[in-house]
Design a protein around this nucleic acid. Sequence first.
DNA 1: CGTAGATTTGAATGTGGTCAATCCGAGTGG
DNA 2: CCACTCGGATTGACCACATTCAAATCTACG
Lengths: 239, 239
Amino acid sequence: MKANVIGLTSSCVSCRNCPASRACIATELSGQDPAIRDRIVKRRRFMQKGEMLYRPGEPLRALYTVQTGCIRTSMTTCDGEVQVLGFHVPGELLGIDALGEQRHPSEAAAIETTAVCEYPYHELERLMGEAPAIQRQLLRLLSREIAREEELMCLLGQRNAESRLAACLLNLSERYSRGGKRGDGFTLAMSRQDLGNHLGLAMETVSRLISRFQDEGMLSVAGRHVQLLDAPRLHALME
Amino acid sequence: MKANVIGLTSSCVSCRNCPASRACIATELSGQDPAIRDRIVKRRRFMQKGEMLYRPGEPLRALYTVQTGCIRTSMTTCDGEVQVLGFHVPGELLGIDALGEQRHPSEAAAIETTAVCEYPYHELERLMGEAPAIQRQLLRLLSREIAREEELMCLLGQRNAESRLAACLLNLSERYSRGGKRGDGFTLAMSRQDLGNHLGLAMETVSRLISRFQDEGMLSVAGRHVQLLDAPRLHALME
DNA sequence: CGTAGATTTGAATGTGGTCAATCCGAGTGG
DNA sequence: CCACTCGGATTGACCACATTCAAATCTACG
């Protein structure tokens, strides 16, 4: 019964009853039109922790949104270094960096049990021809993604470790709460390693900072569950 | 006579004879169709060092490409910190991060005497309605911009100072050479300050590194003119 | 219950930042 | 033509923050 609530046992492709629908980008992409939305959401796919959604170099077959769980996107540089580009939580879109070359430049992997919705690309293309509004929406999403990355660049370029982690925690908290969950507590599905890599920090630094934030009463951590106790103070850390 | 070559005295809006045309994104955007290209390139604007092309918050009126000179884009965070997002050299596109909200999130300033070509947005929108190919091209450009930023994030997140600067110099060299100039020498129009900020480094660090690269015979610097003497070794520094 | 993998914690090290003094070059005015 | 000025660039000394290496704990899961 609990399982039904999070949608894992149901394979129906309707967006009705989807736990992420409130925050889901599909709603926006379809211009609030449920008929169009149901045309682009074709399939649901269930992934185990560690499973790959796409790999670098693969042709673009579909865009995706996360329904439940969490997807990590990353790139591998020519010399084998990995950069974690981001974490995608319910409602968020995946794969748009492939629209340019029709081929994925990055990779996407589930970091916990995850369900994603597929939007087959050929169908999207067809829709774009019929309804220019869709193209407008896509442009908007890409542009927003650029703005998001610009923000992250500010984080990596200007901030110290403390400030980066605070920003990241607040950001995740906000994005989770958008999906309907209470904003003050969420599950940190990603490892310290991934989190550190994403923020340009060593795993140990992340761990130390989390401990310190906890000592100072700004958050409480139980395993991977995080509660932000003093969001204003975390905001202040970002300066 | 020299001035004619760099196009500063001529205000004609044709792309013929434009020194940047070979590398210009307008060619691509118009799908190689000169007629379409001439419809989107409407005006040329000449800017002094320090002059602003657009400011954060301004409504999106046009996209731009650089014809000659160099434009710096940057963002100011809520608390007043500046992040230099990039430098745009001849042929490169500006303003696409505004497509999402129809409003510029970043700012753009000339860092030397610069000429830009304007693509009025309402005209672009009209064209998108008529020729879906244009929309496709725009999507491609946005997507490529995302990939570009992802690379920069790798740089900021994974690399040390040495590696960042080497990568940046090689990158600039390549982009300048695409515009037709010889690849081994180019003018570093931006200040050490801007370069450092862009790479997440202190100005002093940039200066020290440039001196060291020079001592080690990898490049020669005369004021702001840079010659890459040993590109392979610079590549190796990136690891 | 036991192992492998994550996480935490500690201590030592080093890279890059900060602060400050100096240098250089372009532009200005005598 | 030379002194002066102002901003940018360079160089040096010192220090802090974050990394690295290592060991100890904790957690998940077979």
